[in-house]
Design a protein around this nucleic acid. Structure first.
Length: 124
DNA sequence: TGGATGACCTACA
DNA sequence: CTGTAGGCCATCC
């Protein structure tokens, strides 16, 4: 019975390391954990993070929408909190992730090391 | 052991 | 471009 929050622990570490005024996406966290395909599992980790002191409000989906808002309590607490940190929001209630997107060093290092030829990954 | 769930992401029609 | 479907990984019952 491992049941060790190995994966969760990683997510917590990443989220906890998110600098103030920055936001990250599930995919990045998942990748930072080593499994970008487990973006969903990352959400699970945050599920417990919402009960923790982790700045889960800094975690948004790829488009920058506060998906966890509904789990937070239908309130704009998340939005207000992010705004308080200097995060700007879009008209669609989406964080300007493009301007505040923060990528974990692990991902950066890995992305640089592994992917030398950056082939337009997520360019939509 | 296996099915079901989950705050996602990507791909295809 | 929008909508739908599938996948991927981990935890819970």
């Amino acid at each position: 019975m491992k049941r060790e929050k190995d994966f969760f622990d990683r997510v917590y570490k990443i989220v906890e390391k998110i600098p103030r005024g920055k936001v990250t996406t599930f995919g990045l966290i998942a990748e930072a954990c080593g499994i970008k395909s487990a973006a969903r599992t990352v959400g699970w980790a945050l599920n417990g993070a919402s009960a923790s002191h982790l700045p889960c409000h800094r975690v948004v989906n790829r488009i920058g929408a506060l998906t966890g808002r509904m789990h937070f309590g239908d309130s704009h607490l998340m939005e207000d909190l992010l705004r308080s940190e200097g995060i700007t929001f879009d008209k669609d209630d989406c964080v300007e992730i493009k301007k505040h997107l923060w990528i974990p060093p692990k991902v950066l290092s890995r992305n640089q090391k592994k992917s030398k030829t950056n082939n337009g990954k997520r360019s939509k």
